[in-house]
Every structure is written in structure tokens, then in C-alpha cells.
Design a protein around this nucleic acid. Structure first.
Lengths: 342, 342
DNA sequence: CTGAAAGCGCTAACAG
DNA sequence: CTGTTAGCGCTTTCAG
């Protein structure tokens, strides 16, 4: 049986198929697309010829004619980093079934490169663009009045008329905090990332709100620093001095939580018996590698991506795209670091 | 000044530009492409019209006519994981400047999906395909006699006639080991990943070779286990029992190294004073978060990707693509965990 | 120096 | 039931 793919010579066109099947080019097209009515025998003969020659309809020609390319662009400013990848996966998920292919572009955080990529994508007649990013900090949009719909995911456009999908940091902070309260903790501290990050501020706000509902306040000051383990180690020390009776610490990231865990251990506090610990990100290598394994907030980034894709598809279908900033609920993943309340 | 992008209504074609500039369609084309000879004034008039209307040549039409699409496919089996991302970045790097766009496809490790993606890419007339993967284990190729060149990066095709680019695990192991010897260590142990992984075996072989050159043998048995911190913690205990006088440990991954470091600390061995430690991967969040920061082997994955892209471009240009498995040298990153030799 | 016409691979009307 | 034709947007001969 000849391999259908062995057309290394010249690409097989529908013209070849038609010739091989002894029909005209138009008939071949209809036969292959199951359109119109014709003798079953003819249809089969054409199909056989196509199969034998390894015919693959040229998507470009179809696109040119049909006015649709079934492609979208995915622009990331995250160097394909840790956050945008799950988003992309989710997006690919929602798009892939629709026979839509994805052009990937990385901007390296360079606006010139970005502009360049947008131009290229538009020249390729993508039907829509998803923009993802590293942080949730608002950023300038990729352009106004573009001829295709645009959705921002895991990043946020400064332009109010754009649609941006971001994780619910505030809700996540509240979720983590309420979980700690449920397990009987009442003196909850917070060590997190730079105050300049909206994500850090929102998570802290969520925590404060949840504590407030219970008539409580944070134990010690909210400690802002870098998104690093090293800061977690330092921050924990500061916190232990400021609020020695702390019985739970909510951390702005899993990395910070690991650092905190290390200092707690060095200072003879057992996790979770003396101090319960909650991280943020559900970055598994970190959260599972930590001892004990970290309870943490998962931002459902895949869902962010899926939603972004779905909104984009709506836009492509001609339905008006919503605008403003929309938030995707987070989810708590409970592990050892908060088991067995006091 | 009108925004060139405000063509939300209908896409601007060269026909529109020609009409606006008062020239024929062919003249407009030549003017825009700087081809042929014509009055400077005409050229300028066309350029101005194109600018004003926000004309973007339709890449599809150009591709159809020119027989080149300037696109390649990137297939990953790694769910955009930690390893294939740097590879992609490197590839995008080498391709992007050549005005080549990249279609991303994730297979989720499903051969059916993979087949599907390959078909789709070929239908879109990509000019080449790069396949990346999670492990360096050999895998079946994506198809024989495809009409476009294919390069495997960070994964390896079973088909000897394919070109596969993989990191030099053996060289990396030797590099790490020689560094330890240089800092005066002589009793070097090894804790690494599953024996089933070629990467683990190659790294161990590299270490054995380097020790052999110095007339030495590994301290204790080579310990195979999971690629996890937990295994690092356990493995270190086993090693300390089997070879209590060990003064250096080379680990198969940074995660394992972190686990090893933790156990060493628990057992009262100082790093690097009593025992020096080298990891593998240079996965920065892990390597830098560890205390002390880990000396580790960087596989130069970006280079792997860049090379893959370059070979692919060669293939696209019609030059014959080499075949077999080619190896990209690794690089040592020295940090605290090996400073100050005994 | 500029315009007209052919054609890339395909589909969708319309004739036969 | 099948073949012919026009045309998607563009480039490239070849005449004018």
C-alpha cells in the first residue's frame, strides 16, 4: 500500500486528483467536500484518487477564497513563562476543536517587537488575537480599532473598551484566609510580594476582608518584599518578631511560602501544628516539594485561557465582545501545611 | 492624522490602493515592492495611498502565488513544559528574524492528536516542522517522507534518518564531576532519576568517565529514583549510610539536589564545607531558592532550539538536512554550593 | 514608464 | 449528474 505522504516531489493539487479520477476539477472539489449530488461511484473514484496521491487541500487557497483563515494569534509578554503557559494550553484547548490554528509570538517585553508581531498577524489575516502576560498590571493595549477582536488574558489592558480576563486575586486571598479560620486559626500573618504589584495588593485586601468578616485583623503588619524564597525566609523572621503568637501565615506565592516554612522550621515552629501555612499559585514543583506539602490557591489559569478563547470565538462569530476587566474565580488546594487545626 | 488601522469595515486590498492613487493594480504592486522602474512621484503617491488606507498586503495571497508561506510548525509533547519552552524561545529567535511565523501545537502526548496536527500543518503548507518533547527518550517519528523537513529538538526520533538535537547529558555529567574534582573533592556520590531515563544513565556515565580519568570511582552506589525532592531527601540518607565519608554529591536534577541539601542539613553536614553539591538543569527558581544556591549544569536549551531552527532553515533552503543524533554542549553555572574547596 | 492579463489552488455558481 | 467559468488578492510577465 503506497504511503499517501510520499509526494516529496511536487505538491498534489486538486487538478491532479481530478485528472487521476478522470473527472473535471469542479467535480473533484464537490466530491471531496461532499457537496452537490453525484453518482456514488464517482465520489468514490475521486476519493480513491485523492487518497492514493496523498492530496491535502491547500488551506491557503481555501482561506483566500472563503475569506476565513481559521487562525488566531497568541501574543505573550511572558517569554512563554510560567503563567502564560497554562493560559495558552487552555486557549488551545478551546480553539483546537474548532479547527483553528494558533500563531505564537513572544514579545520579549519589547513594544517594538510587539507592534511588529501585531502587524504580521494582521497581514496573515488572523481572525482574532489573544494577549497574555506575566503580570496582571495594566498595560497599554496592542492597538485601537484593530480589524479583529482582541482579548487580554492574565494581563490587563489600560483601555477600558478592551476585554481583560484576570484571576481573582482578591477572592483567592479571601478563600485562603477563610480556610485558615475554618481550621481554627485566628492570628493570621501575611508575607507577600512587592506592594507595587496589583496582585499582591488584591490578595492582601482579600485576606483583610475575610478577617474583617470574622471581626479579626491581620497578625502583625502585612509584609511586602520580593517574590522569592529568600524574602520568605526574611519576612517570616520579621513576622515572628512582630507577632510571636501568630498561628497561621498566608503567603503571596508558593515560593515565599517555602521560604517562610524554612524559617519556621529553623525557629522550632512546627507546620502545621504550631503555624499553618497557605501559599499562592499552586506551582506544583514548589508546593509539593515543600515539607510539608503546601496548601495553596490555584488561579485556574487554564480556565482563564479557555474563557479568553471562548470570548474571542464569540467575537469572531460577530457577537459583540464584552469589555472591562473580568475575573476568574480561584480554587483552594488543601495539602499538609494546613491539616490538623489547633 | 488618520489612524492607518481604522479599516474596521472591509479589508483594504491593493485594488483600493491603486484606485486611490489613480494607477493600475499592477503598478501599485510594483511601487509598493520597490520593483521595476517608475517615476519617483508615482511611487510616492502609491505609498501615500497605502499608508492612508492602512493597506496590509494579504500574506495568504502572496503565499499562494509565490509558493512560499514563511511559516513553520512547532509540535510539542511537553504540554508547553519546562524543557520545551526554552527550546521554543531559541527557535523563535532564529526564525523570527527571517520573517517566519510559528504555528504552535500541543499533542498532550496523544499520538492521534499529533497525527492530526501534522496533517493540519501540512495542509497549511508550513515549510518545516520542529518537534520538541519532554524527555530525551527516543520516540517514533511524526511520519516518513513528509514533504517538508523535520527537526527533533530536546527529543529524539527512533528513525535514524531524522535529525535529532539533544543536550549533551554525558558531557554535562563529566563537566560537573570535573568541577568537583578541581575544587579538591575525591569522594563523589550520585543521586539521580530513574534508570529508565536515558538522560539519567548518560549523566551517570559522564560522571563515571570523569572520575575514571582521575583514577577514581563513585562514592557509594549510583542511586536511581524519582525526579523529585522527596527522592533527593531519601537518596541522600541512603548515600550517607553507604558512604559516610562522601565529600561531594552530583545530583541528576536541581530538584533532587534540593532534597539532598535538606537531608545534609538535617544530618549536620555543611554545604559546601563538608559536602559540595552540584545539580542539573539550572532551573533558576529551584537552584537560586536552595540554600546555599546551587552550582548546576545548564543544558543550553535555548541553543538547542536555535540550532534546530537553523537546521530547519537549511532544510527549507533546500540544503540536505543532516541526520542522526546531534548533541549540544552543556555549561556549568557555579554558585555557592561548591565554593571554597576542602 | 504604465496598464492589461494570466495564474497560484480552490470553491461556488451556473450551463450543458 | 458533470463540466465550465469566474474570482478570492496578489505578483509578474508582456504589450502599449
Amino acid at each position: 500500500m503506497p504511503n499517501p505522504a510520499q509526494n516529496a516531489g511536487r505538491t498534489v493539487t486538486i487538478h491532479d486528483v481530478a485528472a487521476a479520477a478522470g473527472v473535471s476539477i469542479g467535480t473533484a472539489s464537490k466530491a471531496l467536500n461532499g457537496v452537490g449530488r453525484m453518482r456514488e461511484e464517482t465520489r468514490a473514484r475521486v476519493a480513491a484518487a485523492a487518497e492514493r496521491l496523498g492530496f491535502r487541500p491547500n488551506t491557503l487557497a481555501q482561506a483566500l477564497l472563503g475569506g476565513r483563515t481559521y487562525t488566531v494569534g497568541l501574543i505573550t509578554c511572558d517569554s512563554f513563562g510560567r503563567f502564560s503557559i497554562p493560559v495558552m494550553l487552555g486557549a488551545e484547548d478551546a480553539l483546537g476543536d474548532g479547527q483553528i490554528s494558533v500563531f505564537m509570538c513572544d514579545t520579549r517585553d519589547d513594544p517594538i517587537r510587539e507592534r511588529h508581531h501585531v502587524e504580521r498577524l494582521l497581514a496573515r489575516r488572523v481572525e482574532g488575537i489573544i494577549v497574555t502576560g506575566r503580570r496582571t498590571e495594566p498595560r497599554p493595549g496592542i492597538g485601537r480599532d484593530l480589524p479583529v477582536p482582541v482579548v487580554y488574558a492574565m494581563t490587563q489592558s489600560l483601555d477600558e473598551s478592551d476585554l481583560s480576563l484576570v484571576p481573582d486575586d482578591e477572592g483567592g486571598g479571601a478563600l485562603a484566609t477563610r480556610h485558615l479560620l475554618t481550621t481554627g486559626r485566628t492570628r493570621v500573618g501575611h508575607v507577600t510580594g512587592p506592594e507595587g504589584f496589583q496582585a499582591a495588593r488584591a490578595r492582601a485586601a482579600g485576606m483583610a476582608a475575610a478577617l474583617g468578616e470574622a471581626g479579626l485583623r491581620p497578625a502583625g503588619p502585612v509584609l511586602h518584599g520580593e517574590w522569592s524564597e529568600e524574602w520568605g525566609r526574611q519576612g517570616a523572621d520579621v513576622l515572628l518578631r512582630a507577632a510571636p503568637d501568630v498561628d497561621a501565615i498566608f503567603c503571596g506565592s508558593d515560593q515565599i511560602a517555602r521560604g517562610v516554612a524554612e524559617t519556621l522550621r529553623d525557629r522550632g515552629r512546627r507546620v502545621p501544628d504550631d503555624v499553618a501555612l497557605v501559599g499562592f499559585d499552586n506551582w506544583e514543583p514548589m508546593a509539593l516539594g515543600s515539607r510539608p506539602a503546601l496548601t495553596t490557591v490555584d488561579m485556574n489559569l487554564g480556565e482563564v485561557g479557555r474563557l479568553a478563547a471562548r470570548h474571542l470565538l464569540d467575537g469572531i462569530a460577530g457577537r459583540p465582545v464584552e469589555h472591562g476587566v473580568r475575573t476568574v474565580p480561584a480554587r483552594l488546594v488543601v495539602r499538609e501545611s494546613t491539616r490538623r487545626g489547633t
